[in-house]
């Protein structure tokens, strides 16, 4: 990144005021389409959601102002705490995708005949739709005909129906979610591994480093950008987990696998919902949680860029 002000200042004497103005204006003109889009489709809706969260509204009748009543109700809502707890479980367990992805990437980072085929096979779950992933796993778990159910029946006598049990259901869904997420992290690390400097590996090897030590002290530090992106996508993925919950359980049994994003949808938009205000309040809470992470990420990126 070279300093653009250098050539400008050298030539500044040649500029007429009009061209100077053009220089100032041009970046904004180029940014404008993106900024307008961002404003209309991101910033304004965020504001609107917050505004709606202070109303009671069914989407049809006129809105009625209730102040922070929706938030007070949230505090006393079991389903909200279930969703929050599940979101935390998602967040923690989803992180497993990163070490697993790294492991598979290291494993696949070799030159064997046909390695491209293996790589694509490992990447496959990320390519297929989450809906398909959810369906495959719900059949896998299905009581009566699912593979897992039948296997546990053979070995344990009684089949385990993961998705029917409120204690196991969230974990069952997370496992399904990890499958594509691991593939995603793997591909991030595979590209990262391409950029690892071979001379450093060589040098480390001459110094006698190998195995875990080589990985920890030589390879991983070079993979830091890949790890950063993997953490970001995994955190965001965990927080906005929705498709799998919707496909596999509809939040059930009796609401025990809800997460915040699903609960928001249920309250605001589903067949039995249409409490726009309450749904918006949940959205605001989810947004606040996401903001903690997002600002953390942005702060780190900003710091890294200044460090350069």
């Amino acid at each position: 990144m070279t300093d653009s002000s250098v050539p400008a200042s050298r030539n500044s004497g040649a500029f007429t005021p009009r061209r100077k103005l053009g220089r100032k204006l041009a970046p904004w003109l180029f940014l404008a389409p993106g900024m307008i889009m961002f404003l209309v489709y991101v910033i304004i809706p965020i504001g609107q959601s917050m505004w709606i969260s202070f109303f009671q509204w069914d989407g049809l009748s006129p809105k009625s102002w209730v102040g922070i009543e929706n938030y007070i109700e949230l505090l006393d809502d079991e389903a909200f705490y279930t969703s929050l707890k599940n979101n935390v479980i998602w967040l923690v367990l989803y992180m497993l995708a990163i070490p697993f992805g790294l492991f598979i990437a290291l494993f696949l980072n070799q030159t064997v005949r046909g390695i491209r085929i293996y790589k694509s096979l490992f990447f496959f779950p990320f390519v297929i739709s989450q809906v398909v992933v959810g369906l495959i796993f719900s059949w896998f778990y299905a009581p009566g005909f699912g593979l897992l159910f039948e296997l546990t029946k053979i070995f344990g006598g009684e089949g385990i129906a993961v998705l029917a049990n409120p204690h196991t259901v969230t974990y069952g869904i997370i496992v399904a979610g990890l499958w594509p997420q691991i593939a995603y992290c793997m591909i991030l690390y595979l590209t990262g591994l391409n950029a690892v400097a071979p001379d450093q590996i060589e040098a480390a090897r001459l110094d006698g480093a190998k195995g875990i030590k080589m990985l920890w002290y030589v390879v991983l530090p070079q993979l830091r950008p890949a790890t950063f992106i993997a953490v970001v996508v995994t955190v965001i993925g965990a927080l906005r987990s929705f498709d799998l919950v919707s496909i596999m359980t509809d939040g059930g049994p009796f609401g025990s696998s809800r997460v915040l994003s699903y609960y928001m949808y249920e309250q605001a938009l589903s067949e039995y919902g249409y409490r726009m205000g309450y749904g918006a309040a949940i959205a605001v809470v989810l947004f606040a949680i996401m903001m903690i992470f997002i600002s953390g990420f942005i702060w780190k990126m900003w710091r890294d860029e200044r460090g350069l």
Binding site: G144, A161, L163, A164, G252
Partner: peptide, 8 residues
Amino acid sequence: TSKNVAAI
């Protein structure tokens, strides 16, 4: 009643 009906 059948078991695990919540997942069926």
